[in-house]
Design a binder for these strands. Structure first.
Lengths: 221, 221
DNA sequence: TGGCTTTCTGAACCCGTGCTGAGTGGGAGG
DNA sequence: CCTCCCACTCAGCACGGGTTCAGAAAGCCA
């Protein structure tokens, strides 16, 4: 899952980048509103973490413009400790959730995961595909009851497919959401990862649609 | 489904071609208004993606001329970020939908699919023919509840027949809409594909009208 | 009915895409 | 500094799918 983090104070920005990367997100940073605006318009993020009170263009303005232009990605705003108004204004401007500073990284991660899930029309944190079970809350995968160890990328790829089960997902789309910024085009890393996933989770789960990408059959309840 | 994409800036043109091809469209490109005009007048497109603000002949002019000449194919215009006027003028000139740049490829694909569907008088994204079910949103086909794997051409052919169910569709029409640019005329690929479709989806679904083409019985609710 | 055209379908071909095993490099942790 | 693990590259191979071809079947018309 790929995130845009908009935060101007260097210290917090660093913490966010590290913490979120460790939690398996691909993270792009924006230091001011202008940059944020641009990135949010051009790159396909799964969610945005937006600190209000930025230099140049205000965070709320950025958010309003996104929504006006029809960008629907979930946005979580970071508000000052007890600024009641900030929070209300933010939600009115189209934010999907908020978190008061200071906060625990674990909490942020949990909320982001929930946001991304809901944004893709999945209400429960657990998805089942045959004998394979994906728990987005704990980032764990099991097969026939037994826990399966997945690497960061393996999990990321599988989770993305799971959230978009039923439709074929192209490789370019996958790279866009698994990696931050650009990435070497002609490379077969994804195929390698898919191969490993198939070995770990069983053949027949991830279907390849030639020329179009990969597809997971929709969850069976 | 065959598209005409009119876009002058190389970068965006490349993205569009790739993204739309990946999504299963046959794509023709036009780099300026003149070329666009000509192609739109001579080739039978299922939809057009038109960037306003082209060199030579302006996009709006092209669109107006098409409409004046009675070309009815759906046209989606790409407008600059917040150019309110562009959008309004475009719609007045006969555009069917618009998208502000920059945009997400998924959104464009979704809108094009919807446009094409509606242009053919089909309102729902799902079509049912007996025990066969076609979901244009996920590009998936099922028979008696079970998912059926179709190749790109098989799906394209079936989807086109489905959108024009009830009337016989000639082979030349099919090739024109399945392939971009020219294609070797005397070849029986279509017949082969139809045969494969019949095996996968069951006989009696695709009816051949001798000398005229193929026909699908209209959807049964 | 006979001859002609159109369509069907199995088999074979060939190219491109995707798969996979082995090997390299680099970063994190001990 | 060493080790381990993960991401990545590469190259060879397998396979799928679009195409072609040929013979069989089905219509159509005289």
């Amino acid at each position: 899952m790929r995130l845009l983090v908009v935060e101007d104070t260097a210290a917090l920005a660093g913490q966010l980048r590290q913490g979120l990367s460790e939690s398996g997100f691909a993270v792009d940073m924006a230091l001011d509103g202008e940059e944020a605006q641009h990135l949010g318009d051009t790159e396909p993020y799964d969610a945005v973490v937006l600190d209000l009170g930025l230099p140049r263009v205000d965070g709320l303005t950025v958010l309003r413009r996104w929504r006006a232009a029809g960008r629907a990605m979930p946005v979580l705003i970071l508000t000052a400790r007890d600024s009641w108004t900030e929070k209300v204004e933010g939600l009115n401007a189209g934010a999907d959730d908020y978190l008061a500073k200071p906060f625990a990284m674990a909490e942020l991660v949990a909320r982001l995961n929930a946001l991304i899930r809901r944004a893709n029309g999945v209400s429960k944190p657990e998805l089942v595909f045959g004998e394979v079970r994906l728990d987005t809350a704990t980032r764990s995968v099991s097969r026939a009851g037994a826990h399966v160890r997945l690497t960061a990328l393996e999990y990321g790829l599988f989770a993305y497919l799971a959230l978009h089960a039923g439709r074929p997902v192209s490789k370019t789309e996958l790279t866009e959401h698994l990696y931050s910024q650009d990435f070497d085009r002609d490379s077969n890393t994804l195929e390698v990862i898919v191969a490993r996933l198939r070995r770990k989770l069983g053949d027949g789960l991830i279907e390849t649609v030639r020329g179009q990408g990969y597809r997971l059959q929709p969850a069976s309840a």
